[in-house]
């Protein structure tokens, strides 16, 4: 069972709240200080992704963040979007710069969102060793799960 659970409506302002809570719970769970910054970023990315998916589909459903401090500090971020993006980890996250033509009057905000989505996945993949993105077993949505060691310093690679 999760130690702390948080649900929020898909408003960008709430992502910061989720980050703050996650870092506070991680610290309390005994995660090493040097990992807290990664956790802050990774959970922020997972939540931003969920918010973007909900907003693109116009759903007000709550996004769920479940934190568990068992053997490892585990976080699961669940969205309720009908079509989540997979854990596609582009070999070259900067490839879009070559592929996407520069248009003076293109839908720039949309293009930036696409860039952000790609970068978000690149960050998640780069920050989290055991990242998993899976369809929610019973129903609509995807679950992004990730975990970090607790109680002792991570061994150097």
């Amino acid at each position: 069972m999760p130690t702390v659970r948080l649900s929020f409506s898909p408003a960008p302002a709430h992502v910061r709240t989720a980050r703050l809570v996650a870092v506070a719970v991680a610290r309390r769970a005994g995660v090493a200080d040097e990992l807290l910054e990664e956790i802050r970023l990774a959970i922020g990315e997972a939540c931003s992704r969920a918010v973007a998916l909900h907003r693109s589909q116009g759903t007000d459903s709550l996004i769920d963040v479940a934190m568990d401090d068992g053997d490892r500090f585990t976080v699961r971020v669940t969205d309720r979007a009908t079509e989540g993006r997979g854990a596609a980890t582009a070999a070259d996250p900067a490839a879009f710069l070559v592929e996407a033509p520069v248009t003076a009057e293109g839908p720039e905000a949309l293009a930036e969102e696409a860039v952000a989505a790609t970068m978000g996945l690149a960050l998640l993949a780069g920050l989290v060793d055991d990242l998993e993105v899976e369809a929610v077993p019973d129903g609509v949505g995807t679950e992004v799960s990730m975990s970090w060691p607790v109680g002792r310093k991570p061994t150097d690679a």
């Binding site: 931003s48 720039e108 696409a114 970068m119 960050l123």
Partner: peptide, 21 residues
């Protein structure tokens, strides 16, 4: 103090806009 992928997207957008100009 904190920068996420949304911020990176905005910076990339600014880079493209400036290059185009």
């Amino acid at each position: 103090e904190f920068l996420d992928s949304t911020g990176l997207g905005v910076l990339v957008g600014a880079l493209k806009r400036l290059r185009a100009a």
